[in-house]
């Protein structure tokens, strides 16, 4: 009897899940509605797909917002696939996107070889394909995509490090003996590797030689904070503590406080504008952070594909490198989660 009720309960849960999925569908396809129905928009009748590795990450909600806003303005339609970090799932979504014969696809090229053939095949089928957010490290010579819209990660890493090194130098810190520790949520991932390469570029410029890329232990914030605190206690020689991603940057301030550091006793900087980063900047612990302006990646993807269909135009756009400091923090706070 209990088993019967259990199965019934499971069935109800499954139905609830399907209902939820159905409820979410209009959200993802919200770009279809709106003013487009009113007619007279230049992109009417066009349909685009964004195929991404996004998932459990607030980052992609902002990309979607950009996509929706562009669709509302142009009167076209677009869907976004959030494959959740699994390359095979993302490639399946890409195949489905090609099969739906859209007027263009924007794909996150997060692997140097895996996307070569799918993109070539899609282009051969007559579908314009561009890269967004992540590109082949060799750019257009490594992948046939028509163009790329996203942050130059290396330049972003360089800009962040350059800013914090400059501030420290201006404050009289001897950079010759400085040690840089950069914590990454997933140190082996492309973002961490390329951003840290940018940091090393800046180190070379300032004559800094000591660097360590450290494993923050994943996305769980307590783990990240405890690893950073332990490191600071064990490495008093640390002059700069950098976050390679948004979660590490969020935890910089708490780790510095736990290790008994005063603002700018260890100089800190990183990426994104998570709540902990914003507070850290206000308190003077975090010098700078980089906003990669992901809204533009969704927004410009739709516009670029539209312009390519209309006039054959195909630009490459670097959306990143917007430096957040306490001077422009107000604007970022106001728009966080929607446009920033």
């Amino acid at each position: 009897m209990m088993k019967k009720y259990g199965l019934l309960f499971l069935s109800v849960l499954m139905v609830l899940s399907m209902l939820l999925a159905a409820c979410q569908q209009p959200t993802e396809q919200a770009a279809e509605g709106g003013e487009a129905a009113a007619g007279g928009k230049p992109g009417e009748g066009m349909y685009f797909r964004l195929v991404t590795h996004g998932g459990d990450d607030p980052f992609w909600a902002v990309v979607q917002q950009g996509m929706r806003d562009a669709c509302d303005e142009l009167g076209c339609q677009a869907d976004i696939d959030l494959a959740g970090g699994d390359l095979a799932d993302q490639q399946k979504a890409f195949e489905e996107a090609v099969a739906s014969k859209p007027d263009g696809i924007a794909v996150v090229i997060n692997d140097n070889t895996a996307w070569d053939k799918p993109v070539s095949d899609g282009l051969a089928a007559g579908i314009p394909i561009i890269g967004i957010n992540n590109d082949d490290t060799e750019g257009s010579s490594g992948n046939d995509r028509l163009g790329y819209i996203g942050q130059s990660e290396r330049r972003a890493g360089f800009m962040m490090a350059h800013k914090v090194f400059s501030e420290a130098q201006a404050a009289g810190v001897d950079l010759g003996g400085a040690h840089v520790a950069m914590f990454a949520e997933v140190p082996g991932a492309a973002y961490a590797q390329v951003r840290s390469a940018g940091v090393k570029d800046a180190m070379e410029m300032f004559g800094i030689t000591s660097f360590e890329l450290a494993d923050a232990g994943g996305l769980e914030m307590t783990t990240v904070e405890s690893r950073m605190t332990d490191y600071l206690v064990a490495h008093p020689e640390t002059t700069f503590l950098l976050g390679a991603g948004g979660i590490c940057t969020d935890r910089l301030t708490s780790a510095l406080k736990a290790a008994g550091k005063e603002p700018n006793e260890v100089w800190a900087a990183g990426f994104d504008a998570a709540p902990g980063t914003v507070e850290g900047m206000k308190e003077g612990y975090v010098t700078a952070s980089i906003d990669q302006q992901q809204y533009l990646q969704g927004y410009m993807a739709v516009y670029v594909l539209y312009l390519y269909n209309k006039y054959g135009l195909m630009p490459n756009i670097d959306t990143g490198g917007y430096l957040i400091t306490k001077d422009n923090l107000g604007l970022i706070e106001e728009l966080s989660g929607t446009y920033r």
Partner: peptide, 17 residues
């Protein structure tokens, strides 16, 4: 307890626990 300490809700709370 964690949210109050972090000063925010984070969807990554508890991942890996």
């Amino acid at each position: 307890m964690q949210a109050v300490r972090l000063g925010s809700f984070a969807a990554t709370q508890g991942i890996g626990f």
